[in-house]
């Protein structure tokens, strides 16, 4: 809660703030939760004045109820669905990444999480002409791969360069610099990044588990608190700034050998939609296929556990048609 300051509301003068401080009432929370009658006696102010201050402060800090109808109106006008550019992934996500929501991709090493992030950011930047914020926490972002994907979309160099310019990359390798970066996005960074008015609509964090998992486990519980902070600011970005947030997560194995997304149960409530990526296991152990299975494991719109086959080369497909002899891109990190 907020610190009490003189002039915050009518009747709350500097003198009174000092008196309240002396009575160990420092924040709005302290004032609201204290016994007004007793406090009035201790600070020798009128009960009426304190009561009025309390009412004003409560009104200032409360959340407002909004009617469902109004919300729906707003939803229709403000929600955008950003297609990822890959039809099978879009089908799984009910036509794309929704603004106002956190979508999570999880998968083992080499399962294609970063490739999906690359593909989505190229599609959003090139086709939808929107700015993309890309927070890279592992150093895996390869701009030449982005260019490769763009080259399959257009042969116009200028358009390629424009699209690349709309992708804003932040590098942060620990949780504090990630928090710094996300908070600075909240306080103006999103608008700055946007090219023509409005604010950036897509925020990608690849990967969120890389910076959080070093803090988890062991005896300290600070890690959990920092994870909650990251979750909170990501939700603010999504809800209050109406951005589509895409994060990646690693996987762990449960005791029965089942693959499940990492970061534990408390993180599992954070993303609204979760997709698990897996390699298509083939007879040959070292198969070099670009096919992946994507499974929807949490969603509020679609039935869960739908499985789709996903081709990571989709984003650079047209190149195949043009020059069949060149073997295309890749896989993952």
């Amino acid at each position: 809660m907020v610190l009490l300051r003189g002039g915050m509301c009518p009747g709350l003068e500097e003198d009174l703030v000092r008196d309240l401080r002396a009575a160990d009432v420092k924040t709005v929370e302290d004032l609201v939760s204290s016994d007004i009658e007793e406090l009035a006696q201790r600070c020798s102010v009128s009960f009426k004045a304190l009561f009025a201050i309390r009412r004003v402060l409560l009104a200032q800090h409360t959340a407002f109820p909004v009617s469902g109808a109004d919300l729906y109106e707003e939803l229709l006008s403000s929600t955008a669905i950003l297609s990822t550019g890959n039809p099978s992934l879009d089908k799984l996500l009910d036509s794309g990444l929704y603004t106002g929501e956190i979508t999570e991709l999880s998968g083992g090493p080499g399962s294609g999480k970063s490739q999906v992030c690359f593909g989505a950011s190229v599609h959003i930047s090139f086709h939808l002409k929107q700015s993309v914020i890309y927070v890279d926490t592992t150093g895996g972002l390869t701009a030449s791969r982005l260019l490769q994907m763009l080259q399959s979309e257009t042969s116009n160099t200028e358009e390629q360069m424009e699209a690349l310019q709309r992708i804003h990359v932040f590098h942060s390798f620990d949780v504090y610099s990630l928090l710094d970066c996300l908070y600075s996005l909240c306080s103006g960074g999103l608008q700055q990044a946007s090219a023509g008015g409005g604010s950036a609509k897509a925020v990608i964090v690849d990967s969120v588990s890389a910076v959080i998992s070093p803090l988890l486990g062991g005896k300290q519980n600070e890690g959990l608190s920092l994870m909650t902070q990251v979750a909170g600011v990501l939700k603010t970005l999504a809800k209050d700034f109406n951005a589509a947030v895409l994060v990646t997560n690693h996987v762990t194995r449960s005791s029965s050998g089942e693959v499940q997304p990492g970061l534990g149960a408390s993180w599992s409530h954070v993303p609204r939609t979760r997709v698990l990526l897996e390699r298509v296991e083939e007879a040959a152990a070292a198969s070099c296929s670009s096919l992946r299975f994507a499974t929807l494991i949490k969603s509020s719109r679609q039935p869960c556990l739908i499985k789709e086959e996903l081709d990571l080369q989709w984003w650079s497909r047209s190149q195949v048609e043009h020059s069949g002899k060149r073997k295309l891109d890749e896989t993952d990190p």
Partner: peptide
């Protein structure tokens, strides 16, 4: 085995 920018070969 894995790479953000190369073919798996």
């Amino acid at each position: 085995l894995k790479s953000p920018g190369h073919v798996e070969t």
